[in-house]
Design a protein around this nucleic acid. Structure first.
Length: 178
DNA sequence: CACAGGATATACT
DNA sequence: GTATATCCTGTGA
């Protein structure tokens, strides 16, 4: 999908999955003030402060309060490149949105966006202009559940937060819980 | 490659 | 109350 925030946009090229049964996820130990929007409703944003400095954006996915969300980790910049450059204070297109904190800075995402619906301004999601090959691997920056291959990225993209060794097959879809 | 920066949460005393 | 870890990034060794 292409993600837009007030018209500044990029194609989502890297995400990570998290859910409430996942010890690496914020929702694992229950609902708090910070992670509240991760528990639903789906189709809304979960924005949290990371390391006291950065903002990170998740798209909330599930419909039954299971705290399932996708962390957006990288975008391929499409529209509003100069706005992004101004916000980020650098020119290199490759580094404008190559990381969850970086893309929030480039798109102007802050706590003010936490809990907002993704199908209304300032957000907009557009269907992918084309199908892409997706590769999977272990998630980044966590110390538990490190073997789950829940990081997904576009194969060969130069806009990833960190390289992912292709080729790797997509994992089997996890069985639905009872 | 190591580490500062510093909000939020949890596990301690 | 203090201590430690964190879904990170820019900077300087």
């Amino acid at each position: 999908m292409t993600l837009l925030v007030d018209g500044v946009s990029g194609r989502i090229v890297e995400v990570e999955a998290y859910d409430g049964e996942d010890p690496a996820a914020h929702g694992f130990r229950g609902r708090t003030e910070r992670n509240s929007s991760m528990f639903g409703p789906p189709g809304h944003a979960y924005v949290y402060r990371s390391y006291g400095i950065h903002w990170c954006l998740n798209l909330v996915c599930d419909e039954e309060g299971r705290a399932e969300a996708a962390l957006i980790r990288a975008l391929e910049p499409l529209e509003g490149l100069d706005v992004m450059r101004g916000r980020r204070g650098l020119d290199d297109e490759r580094l404008l949105c190559a990381g969850p904190g970086r893309l929030c800075q480039a798109l102007g995402v802050t706590r003010a966006h936490d809990g907002l619906p993704l199908d209304e301004p300032p957000f907009e999601l557009r269907r992918p202009p084309r199908a892409v090959e997706v590769v999977a691997g272990p998630r980044i920056g966590i110390s538990v559940a490190t073997t789950l291959p829940w990081r997904y990225a576009e194969a060969g993209s130069r806009f990833l937060s960190r390289p992912l060794r292709p080729p790797q097959a997509l994992p089997e879809r996890r069985r639905a819980r009872p």
